[in-house]
């Protein structure tokens, strides 16, 4: 699956994110989210920071730049994290391109 850095991605309306006891819990709303039925998901710290920026109004390149600034990181590792994370979320049907409705 190719990820285009000039594309805007957003979280689908088919999941609801809940902050519970300091964890971000992703609750699937419709069937077919994730690999198994009946699962909830939680994100690690990196995941949470990326998730918060996938709002459909910024390209992935802009998301990466913004995270580089937040983390004051110029090593290039953020790009790998973001691309890997977005791929994972697309496969699990939690993220779509902003033009998909």
């Amino acid at each position: 699956m190719d990820i285009d850095l000039n594309t805007k991605y957003r979280i689908t309306d088919d999941v609801v994110a809940r902050e519970i006891e300091g964890e971000l819990i992703i609750v699937p709303l419709t069937s077919g989210i994730g690999d198994l039925e009946d699962e909830l998901f939680t994100l690690n710290e990196t995941g949470r920071s990326i998730w918060a920026k996938l709002d459909g109004s910024h390209t992935l390149k802009q998301v990466i730049e913004s995270l580089n600034q937040d983390f004051q990181d110029s090593s290039g590792s953020v790009e790998g994290d973001v691309v890997g994370f977005v791929k994972e979320l697309i496969r699990m049907k939690m993220v779509i391109t902003a033009s998909d409705e």
């Binding site: 519970i20 006891e21 964890e23 819990i25 992703i26 994730g34 690999d35 198994l36 009946d38 699962e39 909830l40 998901f41 939680t42 994100l43 690690n44 990196t46 995941g47 990326i50 994290d81 890997g84 994370f85 994972e88 979320l89 699990m92």
Partner: peptide, 21 residues
């Protein structure tokens, strides 16, 4: 390390049931 993790309901329940909530 995997960024997204599946979480079982009972894990959450255990965590939440430690105090009145």
């Amino acid at each position: 390390m995997k960024t997204t993790q599946q979480i079982h309901e009972y894990h959450l329940w255990n965590k939440l049931s430690k105090h009145r909530s």
